[in-house]
């Protein structure tokens, strides 16, 4: 009798312990199985915005042959200007910009300057090296950017009953050396929900 009771207790304990094991798994960051919340910008929101913006830039500016490079035969040079965060959250705008930079570099039509950027060089060592080379060779090596990219991320929150709606507006502008906006776009990501959920 006691043996049976012990067996049952053991089985119950194993079942409880198995149930308590937290399930953690790797998820493909490009899939639709990521946690989506209305409380903030999720990584897939940045990916979607970067995707839409890059596609728009290729469609409306690069593919029609409007992109011009200061160095014939070389890709156009892009510098990153101010990307303003006008949301109520602390976020790194590189989550948007870096994806776009990588995608634009992969087109073979655009390169990004790491020594000329808003707020100082992104790569201080490269900037120092450039200055040293210019000093020793007594020759200007700095290539001025052909275009600069600036933008803003705006947040809007509203609710009706138990439904919460959060919108994130991504605005980007590409300016030429003459300070003219040669490409601009705005993408809005709207999320509605009553509670945190997984997926889109």
């Amino acid at each position: 009798m006691n043996t049976k009771l012990n067996l049952l207790l053991g089985a119950a304990a194993v079942a409880v312990l198995t149930g308590c094991v937290s399930k953690t798994a790797y998820v493909d960051p490009n899939s639709s199985r990521l946690v989506t919340t209305t409380e903030g910008i999720n990584i897939q929101d940045f990916s979607q915005a970067a995707d839409a913006m890059t596609a728009s830039l290729i469609d409306n500016f690069i593919n029609p042959g409007l992109l011009q490079s200061g160095e014939p035969g070389q890709p156009a040079l892009l510098a990153i200007s101010r990307i303003q965060n006008n949301t109520g959250q602390q976020l790194d705008t590189d989550m948007l910009v870096k994806k776009m930079r990588v995608a634009l570099l992969q087109t073979g039509k655009v390169q990004t300057s790491t020594t000329i950027a808003y707020g100082g060089p992104e790569d201080p060592l490269a900037a120092e090296q450039q200055k040293a080379q210019e000093f020793f060779e007594d020759k200007q090596h700095t290539r001025l950017p052909d275009y600069t990219l600036s933008g803003k991320i705006i947040e809007d929150r509203t609710s009706a009953g138990r439904t919460k709606q959060t919108s994130y507006i991504f605005q980007l502008s590409l300016s030429s050396r003459a300070g003219i906006g040669v490409w601009e776009d705005e993408r809005t990501i709207v999320k509605q929900g009553k509670r945190a959920s997984v997926g889109f």
Binding site: N30, S31, S32, D51, A55, K99, A103, F200
Partner: peptide, 22 residues
């Protein structure tokens, strides 16, 4: 590509929608 993501869309009943990709 870093921008190869799953994109969400909504389609109304009996709606014909055009999806574009570059």
């Amino acid at each position: 590509s870093p921008i190869r993501v799953a994109r969400p869309r909504t389609i109304e009943a009996r709606e014909v929608l055009l999806i574009t990709a570059t």
